[in-house]
Computed example of a mutant assay.
Amino acid sequence: MELKGDRRGLHLLATDLSNEDGLVDDLVKTLNARHKFLGTAAIYLEVNLPLTPSLFQRVAEVFSIFPNLTLKGIIQTDPSSVIPLEAKKPPSPPLIVRHTVRSGQQIMHQGDIIVIGDVNPGATIIASGDVMVFGWLRGTVYAGQPGDRARHIYALRLQPAQIKIGDVIALGDGHGEQPEYAHIEEGTVVVQRWDDVRLPEVVTQESKNRRIERRASHLSH
């Protein structure tokens, strides 16, 4: 694997490998040969494979063998090979989830997803649009699928296990001390403070409609 550096950090290029097994084997050999030279580097891995949870887990396991090194993220260099999430369908209205998403649960939606509750460790959210979590985000969230880097992930407390925006995947980031959002900046996932925290209009309007329906039902009896 070729090693290059830019102002974002060090990149290992694995773009000539066409399957996960070959990538993992080559990654082990490369890190075993270079880990002393690399010191305590934070590294981005560039691949030409679909970004799947399986790939991320296997790469993370390799890096765990070398505790002095940090896997900063995996960058997909060929977006055409990303597995689409019903890419040809037009976006649907936002999906509003009014409960905590628990471990083992997976929610997928072609559009924005708004969670009024927490996303627990072991839970997965996959959206073609933005993801907003009005609670703790400790699970896995994919926004902008299959390849929209302009999307965002918002949370009142951001401590995800893993996040992916478009074709860029990264380890959990954020401090969990204040509202924050993640977005892509120059090919890297960046986390910033979320200052303008408010429920989207679609949520407040839905709540208003529910109150009207309950009132109408009560008056009809």
Rank of each mutant, 00 (worst) to 15 (best):
P93M: 02
K88D: 15
T140W: 02
Q110L: 15
W194Q: 04
I83M: 03
V191G: 07
G122E: 06
A41R: 02
I153R: 02
D173Y: 11
L171D: 14
H152G: 07
Q76A: 01
W194G: 03
N120V: 14
V47F: 06
I107R: 05
A127V: 02
L69Y: 03
P79H: 00
T124M: 11
I153K: 07
G187P: 03
L71G: 00
T100H: 05
I65T: 12
K29L: 09
Q162C: 01
G111R: 01
L45V: 07
W194Y: 04
L13Q: 10
G122N: 01
I212N: 10
D173K: 09
F134H: 03
I116R: 11
A155H: 03
V119T: 00
H152V: 11
V101E: 04
R7E: 09
G187W: 04
V190A: 12
R157C: 02
I114A: 01
V131C: 08
A41T: 05
P67W: 03
P160T: 00
T124D: 10
A41N: 06
V119H: 00
R151A: 05
V197P: 03
M1D: 07
F37A: 10
G122T: 06
V190H: 12
N19I: 05
S18A: 12
G176Q: 11
T15W: 09
L13T: 01
N48D: 14
E206Q: 14
G111Y: 02
N48I: 11
I113G: 12
D167E: 12
S64Q: 13
V191S: 05
Q110V: 15
V82Y: 06
V101Q: 07
P84Q: 06
R149G: 10
Q205I: 13
L69G: 02
I74S: 00
R102D: 12
R149M: 13
P90S: 00
N19K: 01
K4R: 09
V203S: 03
S128G: 11
G117D: 15
I107Y: 10
L10W: 07
L156M: 13
G174Y: 04
H99R: 15
A127F: 02
L31I: 05
V190G: 01
P94S: 09
I114Q: 04
S128T: 15
N68A: 09
S18L: 10
Q76H: 13
R210W: 08
I184L: 10
H99K: 14
Q105H: 11
V131H: 04
R193Q: 12
L219G: 05
G104V: 04
I75S: 05
H175Y: 11
E180F: 13
Y181A: 08
T30D: 07
E177G: 15
S220A: 15
D6V: 04
R210M: 15
R7V: 05
H218N: 13
D6M: 02
P79N: 01
G144P: 04
L45M: 06
L38K: 00
G129D: 06
S220G: 08
S80T: 13
L12W: 04
S18D: 14
S64V: 06
D112C: 09
P67F: 07
T204A: 12
V119A: 01
R157Y: 12
E185H: 15
T204H: 05
